[in-house]
Design a protein around this nucleic acid. Structure first.
Length: 645
RNA sequence: GCCGGCGUAGCUCAGUCGGUAGAGCAUCGGUUUCGUAAACCGAGGGUCAGCGGUUCAAGUCCGCUCGCCGGCUCCA
């Protein structure tokens, strides 16, 4: 039998007899590697340890700390789940079961739903399979014959998958009695699964199609060690504590009221202050960047939305039209048509361009009842919207300015986790898109060039563009790891044409301008939600609804306490006085729970020295200092919009 | 919209087998005047989400509606 040569990641090479398994190779390198390895990567392909190696190739072993290893491990954990479920519930038919960012799930078709109790039983059965170290065996089946095997087992969903996806000879994995149509690879045996937990049951649709079978999805997670699992579970608990819906109530920032309707936000005074600070900052920056501030009506004639194409392309997201004097009016789901009407209100010259119309525009969109989520997904929200009307050769610099602006937003509000995506058209289906190929090439090129020139890593998302143009999206990642889209910069090849927009060019002829639609914060509501979770309610001083609170030791010191409050108030600090008949400790506790940045304890000593004893919400007692000095300190934190101090 | 869970005082929650409503915090009144995370005493507060049904009797059982939560689908 001929020998093969395997090349290891460090460049070393070694000869082995052809047909040796990856596991045997691992063993030859060391028992520890053999015990730890989960799979192997041969010639760039992930394979099982049981794979027979018959050709010379580079080889690498996948071991626990690696992300690839974790993915395989969790995929196998999903099989572990399915093996337990099919064992306990013969009426449950497995669908698909992939690993996810944070764990895995498996979808089952079953008449009766799974209960919390069922989850416990399933977990126990999973543990038994782990304890028995049941092997994961890869088998190869010819398509028709293999399909029959699954048919005999009654697994009609698997048959459907095989029909659609299987190669002429496909692979399947056997774990005890459970057989799954699966590409693999998998860990050699279930004894390798060290720490797992089932988290929840939820509804899903077969293949994500809401007209298809309803499925029951069991979510779980798996880690290489008990400690990692415990850390993850603790992190979920932590995330719950900073859930903006909970903090919104605790800190009295906003509410959603049954009497008013779902998805409609009431900004309470404390949330209102934060919104005002955000908006003030934003307007200052907009003006500094050559934007004009405009305001447009909330409801406009329906025919306007017919012209814009919204009644065709956006109908399912719009509230129903209202009847007004034999006409129909539409609550606006977007601000663009309004801005376009301002553009159209007079003739425009190339000398006017670019025109940048910005509006904190409140829009209303119909969202299906199950999708609302606190501030993150609502039916009425305010976009920090703007439409830039420009000439084609101004595109790149305008886009760059938008992206720079977006990054200033991130920096100003202290965000560090984000993802940038460039959504382009699907070149296979140019019929799905408005505009010419030249326009698209120009626009996509402008977006791509801008990101590259700015050295911003981004994900290319072909086919994700909207029908009227490509876009750049910036997503922020919240406390529970969910990404939320905020910034969007998109081209629009549709509306300028539909509305017949023109400008007089240098050649004296009318030309159609290019339109850029952009929102940086996206929606003020969603942005606020992300902000709350990001800071867990402990806002930077410039945003904190109450920046300092004066706590007199007893009411003998009320007079001085009022002086302190008055002086700080005159300096523009949002300062409260807690003169309640409560012990100092109790008032400190309440101030801490309200996450007020500074507590100013004043008693005899402070009154004598015109001082305040400062307690910071994060590090506690910070000692006494002259009131004038403290005033300077807070002022500077506010003026510099310090995120950390 | 779909699947599942849930809805009791302003908030967080208890309420057994169907027998007529309870705690802590908050609020209000009083006492206490206090040096860095909860003083003490007392009082008020409920259409048990809404509507209908079963029953001698419903917070509890059944149906419908509304809303919330976890997902799916769709999105800023």
């Amino acid at each position: 039998m001929p020998n093969i040569v395997l090349t290891f990641p460090d460049g070393a090479t070694k000869e082995f007899p052809s047909g040796i398994t990856a596991l045997e190779v691992a063993k030859s390198l060391g028992p520890r590697l053999a015990a730890e390895a989960l799979a192997a990567k041969v010639d760039g392909r992930l394979v099982d340890l049981s794979a027979k190696l018959e050709e010379s190739a580079p080889i690498q072993f996948i071991t626990p700390p690696s992300p690839e290893g974790l993915e395989i491990y969790r995929h196998s954990s999903a099989h572990l789940l399915a093996a337990a479920v099919t064992d306990l519930f013969p009426d449950a038919h497995p669908g698909i079961g992939p690993p996810t960012e944070t764990g895995f799930f498996y979808d089952f078709y079953r008449e009766r739903p799974f209960t919390e109790d069922d989850l416990k039983k399933i977990e126990a059965r999973m543990q038994e399979i782990v304890n028995a170290d049941v092997p994961n065996e890869r088998v190869h089946l010819p398509k028709e014959e293999g399909k029959k095997v699954f048919e005999q087992m009654g697994e009609f969903l698997k048959c459907q998958l095989i029909e659609e996806k299987a190669e002429p000879v496909f692979s399947a994995y056997r774990t005890g009695k459970f057989l799954d149509f699966c590409r693999g690879p998998h860990i050699p045996s279930m004894g390798r699964v060290k720490a797992f937990k089932l988290l929840s049951v939820a509804g899903a649709y077969w293949k994500g199609d809401e007209h298809s079978h309803p499925m029951q999805r069991i979510y779980g997670t798996a880690f290489f060690s008990k400690k990692d699992l415990d850390d993850f579970l603790a992190q979920i608990e932590e995330a719950k504590k900073r859930d903006h819906r909970r903090l919104g109530k605790e800190l009295d920032l906003f509410s959603i009221q049954d009497d008013a309707g779902p998805g409609l936000i009431f900004w309470h005074p404390k949330g209102g202050v934060i919104r005002k600070e955000i908006e003030d900052w934003l307007r200052t920056e907009l003006l500094a960047r050559g934007y004009d501030l405009v305001f447009t009506p909330h409801a406009m004639r329906l025919h306007l939305w017919e012209t814009s194409g919204h009644t065709n392309f956006y109908r399912e997201n719009m509230f129903g039209a209202m009847d007004v004097e034999n006409d129909h009016y539409q609550l606006k789901p977007m601000n663009c048509p309004g801005h376009i009407l301002i553009y159209k209100s007079r003739t425009r010259s190339y000398r006017d361009l670019p025109l940048r119309f910005a509006e904190l525009g409140t829009v209303y969109r119909y969202e299906r009842s199950g999708v609302m989520h606190g501030l993150m997904r609502v039916r009425g929200f305010t976009q920090d919207d703007a439409h830039i009307f420009c000439m084609p050769d101004q595109l790149e610099s305008e886009v760059q300015a938008c992206v720079e602006f977006a990054f200033l937003v991130l920096k100003t509000f202290g965000f560090d986790r984000y993802q940038v995506e460039l959504s382009a058209r699907d070149p296979q289906h140019s019929e799905h898109y408005a505009g010419t190929v030249e326009e698209w090439n120009l626009a996509e090129g402008a977006l791509k060039n801008t990101l590259e020139r700015m050295n911003i890593p981004f994900k290319h998302m072909p086919g994700e563009a909207v029908f009227y143009g490509p876009k750049i999206d910036v997503k922020l990642v919240d406390a529970i790891g969910r990404p939320w889209q905020l910034t969007t910069v998109q081209f629009d090849f549709n509306l300028p044409g539909r509305f017949g927009l023109e400008y007089a060019a240098a050649d004296g002829h009318p030309h159609t301008p290019v339109m850029v639609h952009r929102a940086l914060l996206g929606s003020i509501e969603r942005f606020f939600g992300v902000l709350i979770e990001h800071y867990a309610g402990a806002f930077p001083v410039w945003l904190a609804p109450v920046q300092a609170i004066v706590l007199p030791i007893s009411d003998k010191h009320l007079g001085y306490a009022r002086e302190v409050q008055e002086e700080l108030r005159r300096a523009g600090v949002r300062v409260q006085l807690d003169d309640r008949n409560e012990k100092l400790n109790a008032r400190i506790r309440d101030a801490q729970l309200q996450k007020i940045p500074f507590m100013l304890v004043v008693g005899e000593r402070e009154a004598q020295a015109k001082a305040v004893a400062v307690r910071r919400r994060d590090t506690g007692d910070a000692g006494s200092r002259p009131l004038a000095q403290f005033k300077e300190e807070v002022r500077s934190l506010i003026d510099t919009r310090a995120v950390k101090w």
